[in-house]
């Protein structure tokens, strides 16, 4: 049961280096301990096994880095007020968290969260990925990328709840850009959708792709993958659009999309409680 009126905060953080090999569940436990260590008054669920009310965003596959991960934390209203976090400087909490978080996980921004918003997992509809391609030249990757973009459908098989399912993931490929400098490896920048399911960069790289002349493109492999951004729709648009049309929206347009929390979100009062 949710206590009405508990304030929430959204935290944005990066994940890089050795710690990228931790799993989504590992990161959740790391956060629970870090929040206890800074004595943030996190709200707990009721019942036999009280759990801290923290919601984590889209899982980042183990081994990937990220420049934009999120979590939302619900605070215990009474304790948050008595600790006078209300006017506490945002930078201070960020600093304290960074002191207790492991090397490689860094808080970039913290801000109070408006009430009634969607959960992170519902709100985020696409991610921008930076992929360092392994063992393939610029021209080869260019051909592959146009193959992807020209394809009518891209069928990917995966296991879901023990059953093999085949999805067409072409609608989830919003954009692909091939870059990088010669001799420095090929850098692929991809905007990939997350609704109704998230497309992983490696799934796309390994997809079986029929060429126009009947042959198949060889799959690519990645040396490293980094989630650069997560995107949700601008609220003004969101209210106008149905769930279905949202899923089809191409959010490559700069004015249609917004990050859940910008890295340069200005200092804000940490907790805004209703009077």
């Amino acid at each position: 049961m949710s206590v009405v009126g508990n304030p929430k905060i959204r935290v944005r953080f990066s994940k890089a280096g050795k710690v990228r090999f931790t799993s989504h569940r590992d990161v959740a436990r790391i956060w629970e301990r870090a929040l206890r260590r800074v004595e943030l008054p996190v709200a707990y669920s009721e019942g036999f096994s009280p759990r801290p009310k923290i919601s984590y965003g889209l899982a980042l596959p183990t081994g990937y880095e990220s420049a934009g991960e999120y979590l939302d934390v619900e605070l215990d209203r009474e304790k948050a007020e008595s600790l006078q976090l209300r006017d506490g400087p945002e930078g201070d909490l960020r600093e304290r968290l960074n002191q207790v978080l492991p090397e490689g996980i860094r808080v970039q921004a913290i801000a109070p969260l408006e009430r009634g918003g969607e959960s992170l997992q519902q709100a985020v509809i696409a991610c921008t990925w930076a992929i360092e391609v392994d063992g393939a030249g610029f021209a080869e990757v260019e051909v592959w990328a146009s193959g992807i973009l020209d394809a009518e459908e891209i069928l990917v098989e995966r296991e879901r709840k023990g059953k093999k399912v085949t999805d067409d993931v072409r609608p989830l490929v919003h954009s692909l850009d091939v870059g990088g400098s010669p001799g420095d490896g090929v850098q692929l920048t991809a905007v990939l959708g997350t609704q109704p399911r998230a497309l992983r960069p490696t799934e796309l790289l390994e997809a079986r792709l029929e060429g126009t002349s009947g042959g198949t493109y060889p799959p690519l492999s990645a040396r490293s993958v980094c989630r650069m951004k997560q995107w949700m729709l601008r609220e003004s648009q969101e209210s106008r659009e149905s769930q279905e049309s949202r899923n089809q929206t191409k959010i490559t347009q700069g004015d249609a999309r917004v990050e859940p929390l910008s890295v340069d979100a200005g200092p804000a009062a940490l907790v805004e409680t209703r009077a």
């Binding site: 050795k18 090999f21 931790t22 799993s23 590992d26 183990t62 081994g63 207790v100 492991p102």
Partner: peptide
């Protein structure tokens, strides 16, 4: 090691980095 850890189960076993 970093280059091969993607190939194994539970790579976080091998990174250290504990508090």
């Amino acid at each position: 090691l970093e280059r091969v850890l993607d190939e194994v189960q539970k790579p976080a076993r091998y990174i250290g980095c504990e508090d």
